[in-house]
Amino acid sequence: MSYEVLGLSALWFFLFAYLIIASIDFGAGFFAYYAKQTKKDHILNRLIARYLSPVWEITNVFFIFFYYGLAGFFPDAGYYYGSAMLIPGSIILVLIGIRGSFYAFENYGSRSSLLYTFLYGASGLLIPAAISTGLTISEGGFLREEGGSIHLRYTELLTNPFSWAVVFLAIVSVLYISANFLTYYANKAGDEPARKILRSYALFWSAPQIIASLTAFIAISRQNPEHYNNMLDLWWMFGLSVLFFLGAVYFIYKERNYGLSFICVMLQFFFALLGYGIGHMPYILYDQIQVTADATLPAMGTALLFAFGGGLLMLIPSLILVMRMFLFDAEYVKGKK
């Protein structure tokens, strides 16, 4: 496999990892706020805090990896996106700034406040909505070149049904993934009342999730027929994705195998994002940036892959260590440590 395809695969991996980890995180923030509003926080929030506290910085890093990686392997993509995303990108950063800080203020500071919870709950839903514009733009038709530089067509972006379909998909997916994971986590912690509430959230968000997925899928056909046709050729991947969706909902509904249910959720998004990504080839940004033609030089591509490999060798053992200490340490999960 060539270095640019390997690089793109690494980027895809970061995107997938971010999608799952960040969704859990963003959704948990929203549920924590919602629970406070509906006076259920005494049941839910301790569980959520125990999961979130040790991992929140990790989430952010996947996003940074993704954009550094994108610009490293495909510097022209960095140029196009950088020029176009000034305002959406700044909005993302401000929201991440608010969310990250107020999360820390709430948890490491000395006072819990509804305002802080609201700020990180609400920003958690707006961030995926804002980030999803990056994916929207990649379908082509939203940029214009003028005077030697790239500009975003804001009106086009804001009035296009496709971009709203993507925003809708991003938000409901966050809530769906998060509720599903937290149900599993509550079950592991043996926290019966929390599990019940979270299970109802997971079931509630599953129908909107699949509807939003189908809507976005169909909306691509109008925005970018070429991409749509490529995806139709990969119909079996999306078929698998739907099957895993049904599996996840089945287990949650039957109140068993919560771990398996969450694995189904991950596989659902794995195949959907894989089909979407492969169908997107050979373009990274439609009509402008191609995988092979616009890749960085081989020396740099190889160096980046080595750095990536070396980084993983260092990180995976550390991550396993942390996970054993927090996520999968039964005593910690149950709140005894």
Partner: peptide, 30 residues
């Protein structure tokens, strides 16, 4: 969060610089 901001601002505010230098400095950034 401020580190995330400056990291992305490099692209948002200095796209031409990053287009050229990105071939070189993305490794240490990574």
């Amino acid at each position: 969060v401020t580190g995330t901001a400056i990291g992305l601002q490099l692209f948002l505010l200095w796209p031409t610089f990053m287009q050229i230098a990105g071939h070189v400095i993305s490794l240490p950034l990574f």
